[in-house]
């Protein structure tokens, strides 16, 4: 089945065509333009060119996968509005995936921090082990990321750690019993990164957490590059934006099983900036 992937959660507008069969994914064509203010202008011509390059008509598509962000709202909505309208016009299902997951998935094995630019001197970020998300997506100032992660890890593992077995296999076992597979994976990371000690560590200052960030093997995403000095984690400079094939891979199970179409709701993470006016007092109350 031919699947179209779209993502506009970063400065990149990406359109990709991926062939999905029962046992493999094959990239057919992909186009990307990097311009943070031009998603609305770039994406549709890219889709058109990608289809033309592969000699594929829109009617040949079997599904659409779209990156739900997080990302700057205005650009993000371009990809989702386009994906939703195309899905409706073609009568094919649309599936949403987290855009950061696309980068995390493509980053491959190891402990990876993915961060994209959230503007206003903040990043959207999430953490991955072997391509699977453990934490996030969240939004924070780059300098606060380490602390946010540390707090979350501590909170989410305290139960497992309290059960006292501190060897990796024991943590996984007890965590699985307590909270299922996800918590077990998390505990495994902590064991490997030796972050589990934070449970008992009263020192929560920024320098301490920044040191803990070093537990990551690599960082990816344009936010990681932009704030590389703050994170101090080696950046995969070839992996700044979500690749189309990785987005499709994240939805492969749904595509293959013919799962129902999903409404494409952005991962906003921030509320709209809007203040109720104090204003003039009404004459009559």
């Amino acid at each position: 089945m031919l699947v179209l992937a779209l993502d506009t959660a970063t400065p990149a507008s990406t359109a990709a065509l991926v062939e999905v069969t029962a046992d493999r994914l094959t990239g057919v064509a992909e186009r990307r333009t990097v311009d943070p203010r031009a998603h609305g202008e770039k994406l549709a011509p890219e889709i058109s060119a990608t289809l033309a390059e592969a000699e594929v008509r829109p009617g040949d598509l079997g599904a659409i996968v779209a990156g739900l962000g997080p990302g700057p709202f205005t650009g993000l909505r371009v990809g989702l509005a386009t994906a939703a309208s195309m899905g409706q016009a073609l009568g094919i299902p649309t599936y949403g995936v987290c855009s950061l997951d696309g980068i995390g998935r493509a980053a491959g094995p190891g402990r990876v921090l993915v961060a994209t630019d959230a503007r206003r001197r903040e990043v959207y970020f999430a953490t991955y082990v072997d391509g699977v998300r453990l934490f996030g997506p969240e939004v924070a100032k780059p300098a606060d990321v380490a602390e946010v992660l540390g707090q979350a890890y501590r909170k989410r593992t305290s139960e497992a750690a309290e059960s006292a077995a501190l060897s990796e296999s024991e943590i996984i076992e007890s965590a699985t019993a307590l909270a299922g597979v996800e918590a077990a994976r998390l505990a495994a990371v902590l064991a490997r990164a030796e972050i589990d000690a934070v449970v008992d560590d009263p020192d929560e200052d920024r320098g301490y957490w920044a040191k803990k960030l070093r537990a990551f093997d690599r960082a990816a995403g344009e936010g990681a590059l932009k704030y590389g000095d703050i994170f101090g984690v080696p950046v995969e400079e070839h992996l700044l934006y979500p690749p189309g094939a990785a987005l499709v891979a994240l939805a492969a199970e749904r595509i293959r099983s013919g799962a129902p179409s999903e409404q494409l709701t952005p991962l906003y993470l921030r509320r709209p900036d809007a203040v109720e006016p104090a204003g003039r007092k009404p004459v009559l109350t």
């Binding site: 998603h39 609305g40 994406l43 549709a44 889709i47 058109s48 829109p58 709202f73 205005t74 909505r77 371009v78 990809g79 509005a81 386009t82 994906a83 939703a84 309208s85 195309m86 409706q88 016009a89 073609l90």
Partner: peptide
Amino acid sequence: LAGALLVGVAAAKGYAVAAD
């Protein structure tokens, strides 16, 4: 409104591309 316009324009393009 720029952001509001963009949603409609993007959707219109999606319909136009998909339905030719």
